[in-house]
Nucleic acid binder design. Structure first.
Lengths: 342, 342
DNA sequence: TTGTACGCGTTATCAT
DNA sequence: ATGATAACGCGTACAA
């Protein structure tokens, strides 16, 4: 590997000049610049990134903590989001480090993982996902003055850049939609309010019911443990709903995998999705869009979200802290075949 | 950020000793070691990775080129594979850089992307995926003496570490299975032999037919362009099959997304999957496992494959070149509800 | 066992 | 416009 010294020598200039050719082209006379450039081309010189990073105290790298599920073939949550982030880094000349940790890891180990990442100045910033209401990772990063941006909000009194989707509004809209279709017994299957998105969705459900004047009935709500198998949980929950004397005619599901279970539950109970029980779920996956009937879903702009967090973070690293570094996006109710008039 | 100097000063030793405490603990007397360790703990010192990388000429980082599809919600191909790689890096104390490039990029730009990655010694090695029969990226990396490992084989006369699945055998087994179920008109929907996996699967189809004594009929084969929409291609192909006078009673599909189209095509033509037309496809996705009927699939050990390539590459970086750095894994035919006796 | 000094390849500052 | 020279922070032979 040729170094900047080699280039300087061959071009008959000092290494400072070579550096300037690369980093401050306007500071060097066109003639010498061309000569140096030619030598660079010939020798195939490329600045060593470790040296460059060391010298600039900057790595042009951000990390993304992406907790893969251990279960085989689970929808790897939000891979469109990952695509958005990856593409954006590529476009903005940033490198993306993908970091993971086992999902069933203890809170403490999880935090250690974040710490490791902040140590040694290996990355300029971190993207975090699946924010919790009381997110210890956010607290940690904030304490350590690490630049970060999040997919999702957080209840902590900390100001940081985030991108989120208005999950409450999304579910409210779903309730209205079902109400207008004539449904009066609308169930909700979701996840407990540990994660902020879970909370928002549940709140949307309650608010929605209030708005249309349906009384909240806690027998129509199931919040499945995040730890367990979502598909089983959804199925069991739905089967339970359909056993009672006044079963729901529609169900809103606050999670993609849960919906698979819910649909299974409906079919195993001898009902048909859409025709007998209306279903609305989150996210356009291959499953939801190509199931028969295709599932009516609340679409989140995942790719866009990935793009935006990356942009927000990179801006923050560049020292820009735009006023609008809280981005709340709207979802879209995509009507397919799983909801019927009643 | 405290430096190694700060620690040395506070501990009353030289910086060489501090370095040894970290990298060659046995070379330093327990007493001083403990003292230094305590200071390190107190000051929260962590070696700066850029400096460390520069000094060692090593980054403990590998890159993964992962061509995300631009289309929303398209098969994000093999995210289990990605999980395997990511987890393995985490476990082996390596960092993983995720790199992407637009799928519709020209061959030249694609290669430039690989070049960039090799420049500046930013990574110790590269994992490549979707190998082609005549893979220019492999040629490039080989020429540049870059360490790399691949998911998939390649026809080039280059020896490199790879992990692959025996796709030919997989499809042969599928043919046998259908034959034993009584099927004699077995169609194949796949992709053209640009990628090695496509070729292997197609070959397996032909070999399988030979083995059971069915004559190859090219009217029962469709190789969809990789560029287009797989779902549409599968659907059109299948609809075409079902229009001819002697339609197939079974179809093997050489790609996950294609199968969605094939199933659509069957249903739109008024037939029922399983009951009328048997279907075997690749990969256990949420769609294939939870469609009704659930699709009988050829399961690839994707997570395992991701784990193995990462291990292979990291070994190669460490200078180990094990004899068995060509790993061919078996698939598993997972029987569900989409194939019936005829 | 411990300390010194140099090298790693850049960037950046400051004279010239 | 260009050229020395000093950081940047760490690893490591080599000397003590």
């Amino acid at each position: 590997m040729p170094t900047i010294d080699d280039v300087a020598r061959k071009a008959g200039v000092s290494l400072g000049t070579v550096s300037n050719v690369l980093n401050n082209p306007e500071k060097v006379k066109p003639a010498t610049r061309d000569r140096v450039l030619k030598i660079i081309e010939e020798t195939g010189f490329h600045p060593n990134l470790s040296a460059r990073n060391l010298s600039r105290s900057k790595t042009d790298t951000i990390a993304l903590i992406y907790p893969f599920s251990q279960r085989r073939r689970t929808e790897h949550y939000y891979s469109d989001f990952l695509a958005g982030t990856t593409d954006t880094c590529f476009r903005l000349n940033y490198r993306l480090m993908l970091s993971s940790y086992p999902r069933d890891v203890s809170e403490k180990e999880k935090l250690r993982n974040y710490e490791e990442l902040t140590n040694g100045s290996a990355v300029d910033g971190i993207v975090i996902t699946r924010t919790e209401r009381n997110d210890s990772a956010i607290q940690l990063l904030s304490d350590r003055q690490q630049k970060f941006a999040a997919l999702g909000r957080c209840d902590l009194p900390i100001d940081f850049p985030w991108v989120d989707v208005d999950g409450a509004k999304a579910v409210r809209e779903a309730v209205h939609y079902l109400y207008n279709l004539g449904h009066r017994r609308i169930a909700y299957v979701g996840t407990p309010a540990l994660f902020t998105f879970s909370l928002h969705r549940s709140e949307g459900y309650r608010t929605g019911l209030e708005e249309v004047g349906i009384e909240f009935d806690e027998d129509l709500v199931i919040l499945a443990s995040v730890a367990g198998n979502e598909i089983e949980a959804g199925e069991n929950g739905m089967v339970g709903f359909l056993k009672v004397e006044a079963p729901p005619s529609a169900v809103i599901v606050g999670g993609g995998q849960l919906a698979i279970g819910v649909v299974n539950g409906i079919e195993k109970s001898g009902y048909r999705v859409g025709t007998d029980i209306s279903v609305i779920s989150f996210d356009d996956t291959d499953w939801s869009t190509h199931y028969s009937p295709p599932i009516t879903t609340i679409r989140q702009p995942l790719y866009e979200m990935g793009k935006l967090v990356a942009e927000l973070l990179i801006k923050s690293i560049a020292g820009e802290e735009p006023e609008d570094h809280h981005i709340l996006l709207n979802t879209e109710l995509v009507i397919r075949g799983s909801c019927k008039k009643v």
